[in-house]
């Protein structure tokens, strides 16, 4: 029995020099390679199907009856709203099961914390990964929109960075809840009582003035409303400087504040 498990015992061990968060992000990227094919095709098929069914199909009825919305075809109105809504759905999905799974089932977070990485690295690495994912999702969506002829301005390209910020703003608050939860029961509630209503009422499918006054105020307070507003302005090239600056500010502040709350939650759950 002469197996030698430890090579030389050199101290300090050789390192690559990556910051902690980047090592965490690279773990997500590595894991993603297993499912990227189906994930990418879903990101492509979802806008194709929705734009065809709701934008073209339902749109033909709306354009016929109401002559489009605010001067554009229903398809042009709907597409940016759907893009922002998709970013919301995917960001939330990535912040629920994968997070509680990394704590409880695969226990990846614990393995990471047994290395020199700390909880702040976990949070930052995770949110950077969310931003990367949202860049992919929104870029593919924009490509589909261009094929449907609904990107009306070159400003539309700015939707990618906006989606990255919005994705973090949506994912971080959910992740700070998910990391503390002991089971997945709350996720169904988050989806059905928060994500779906946001998706349906945050001016994704119809303009704000269709809603009764009370609901209009509520809708304007939601993060998705601002994501939709900004995305739509960029895609249509109809910028309202003050309003859109406010949209951006809302998303940046939410992303920043919820990153801090996420860091606190991770610490609370994982450092005991």
């Amino acid at each position: 029995m002469t197996d030698q498990l430890l090579e030389s015992g050199a101290r300090p061990q050789p390192t690559v020099g990556w910051p902690g968060w980047l090592r965490v992000t690279s773990v997500y990227a590595h894991t993603y390679r297993r499912t990227w094919r189906s994930s990418m095709s879903a990101s492509f098929l979802f806008p194709v199907l929705y734009l065809a069914a709701m934008g073209v199909g339902l749109g033909s009825l709306i354009d016929h009856h109401a002559g489009g919305i605010d001067g554009v075809r229903y398809l042009d109105f709907l597409a940016p709203g759907l893009l922002a809504g998709t970013v919301l759905q995917i960001a939330v999905a990535e912040a629920t099961y994968p997070v509680v799974g990394a704590v409880k089932w695969t226990r990846v977070y614990w393995a990471m914390l047994a290395s020199p990485l700390g909880t702040d690295d976990l949070v930052l690495g995770f949110l950077v990964w969310i931003a990367v994912r949202m860049a992919m999702v929104s870029a593919i969506f924009l490509g589909v929109m261009a094929a449907f002829g609904t990107v009306r301005s070159p400003l539309g390209l700015l939707v990618v960075p906006v989606s990255m910020i919005a994705g973090v703003a949506f994912a971080a608050p959910v992740a700070s809840y998910a990391v503390l939860s002991t089971n997945d029961q709350g996720f169904a509630a988050i989806n059905r009582f928060i994500v779906v209503p946001l998706f349906l009422f945050s001016t994704t499918f119809f303009p704000l003035h269709q809603l009764p006054v009370g609901l209009r105020v509520v809708a304007q307070l939601t993060p998705l409303f601002h994501g939709v507003n900004l995305t739509r302005a960029l895609c249509l090239g109809q910028i309202a400087p003050l309003q859109n600056a406010a949209d951006l500010l809302y998303l940046v502040v939410l992303a920043g504040a919820s990153t801090l709350s996420c860091a606190a939650s991770f610490k609370k759950r994982l450092v005991q």
Binding site: I62, R192, F193, P197
Partner: peptide, 23 residues
């Protein structure tokens, strides 16, 4: 219980938002 709300939200959203647009 929450499974029931999804179609309900769709109905409300359509009733409030799209009903007049589609006619």
């Amino acid at each position: 219980v929450s499974g029931f709300f999804e179609p309900l939200f769709y109905l409300l959203s359509i009733g409030l938002g799209l009903n007049h647009l589609v006619g």
